[in-house]
Design a protein around this nucleic acid. Sequence first.
RNA 1: GGAGAGGUGGCCGAGUGGUCGAAGGCGCAGCACUGGAAAUGCUGUAUAGGGGCAACUCUAUCGAGGGUUCGAAUCCCUCCCUCUCCGCCA
Length: 465
Amino acid sequence: MLDPRLIRQDPDHVAKQLTRRGLAVDVDALHQRARQVQKLADDRANLQAEGKKVSRQVGQRLRLLKEESDKRPVVHSDFSEPPTDQWPQVNMEAREESAEFVQLQKEAVALEAKGKEFKQQVTALEEKEKALQDQLRQELLHLPNLPSPQCPDGRSEADNVERRRWGDPKPAAPSLEHWQLGKTLGLFESERSVRVAQSRFITLLGQGARLERALIQFMLDLHVSRGYTEVLPPALVNTASLTGSGQLPKFAEESFRCADDDLWLSPTAEVPLTALHRDDILAAADLPRRYVAYSPCFRREAGSYGRDTRGLIRLHQFNKVELYWFCHPDASEAAHEQLTADAEAVLQALELPYRVVELCTADLGFSACRTYDLEVWLAGAGAYREISSCSTCGDFQARRSSIRMKEGKRNRLLHTLNGSGLAVGRTMAALLEWYQQPDGSVAIPQALQPYMGCAVITPPSSAPK
RNA sequence: GGAGAGGUGGCCGAGUGGUCGAAGGCGCAGCACUGGAAAUGCUGUAUAGGGGCAACUCUAUCGAGGGUUCGAAUCCCUCCCUCUCCGCCA
């Protein structure tokens, strides 16, 4: 979420930055509304201060009345009703005993009436304020993050900028695609998975299932050895968590929702990891906090009909190992480079060629202010394909989720960063295509062999029984 | 799922209608004492928003949301969560 104060104080900057993203937003209306909300809040607070004084005066009068009545002896019984049923502690029988008593009584009644007036005025203002405040908040929740100054300008993904390459991309010798290899090697079941669930779901079998598990464990071990704390988060998350990381309210149609509960299938571990520290105030000495989480991810992939229908590239459910940083605002730029390097380390260890592409303003995700995509070389398809997206979100998610750090006496929103390290299914696809051999088998890169328990995957027919 | 108990500041824990944002303790920070430390004493120690150069000040917040009242941590309603017992279950 953008800072309401920024919108109040520098609407031109906000408008300019949103324009870089290719968005036409009526920032002026937002600006007006934000100022109006503030004005209402100020007026209301002043009125409340007055009302509070009156209430205290009522209390004071009642206390005096009680003291006065306690002093007086009861001279006669008078069963007339007290002015309000709030006064039972006052001995009404004594009220005719003194002029001060009568005077105090009058004052108390008058003050009560005055307080009632304040209350009505405050209530009226509060209603207006709340309505406007809610409206403003909803509008802000729909606005994406502002791009970083370093983020290259662009009008479409064609304007993304390649930053560097690693390895030597070359077509595979037999240039089968991973889904063909998967079929001949018996690694997964596409057609039968439709029976089980739907299209875009996959069932891994035998060596395929083993390879997926090996990759997950390999990635986790690698990142833990580089200083990350391993997390296994819930796969279901609530609405507040999805709102906190930016998936809601705008992208509801992208997630699977549970009908009977306030729960959704998490589209990425970024969601539960952000939510892990929602409303927390972390000690500066604890930063950066770096987490690595394996989680299954669920996405509806709405609007992608017909694209990537075969194999492991685009599924409703896939596995991902996610990297996540909570860090000091001044350190987030360096953190972004480090996080990206950590994701790259997986591809380097597996010796898979890739390139790093920086997304332009038009292609930036909702919560991000700057993003590097890692694109792995798919040797069978002969193309680079996104396998990781490493983003810095500035304080955007921290503000939505209220995650702060202590800086001296003050609290300050911290910065969050996330990146895949890596998408496991796509890693398997790249690996199968890159390491396929003329005899139909697939070699296992050295780093993975201890996890896989073998050096090569062979077709079932030629495998020893 | 059924029955009961309970949610107060970093933690423990008082507080059942009137200067209560909240006693006391612990913890933490600063100062004093000390050769240094322990112990001790003093002072300070929530969050958000607004105003002020600042000292400071105003408003809101005692699980959340409503209600009663001039005034609610305290009374009423709804919801959420935690704990104990029973049932079920991996």
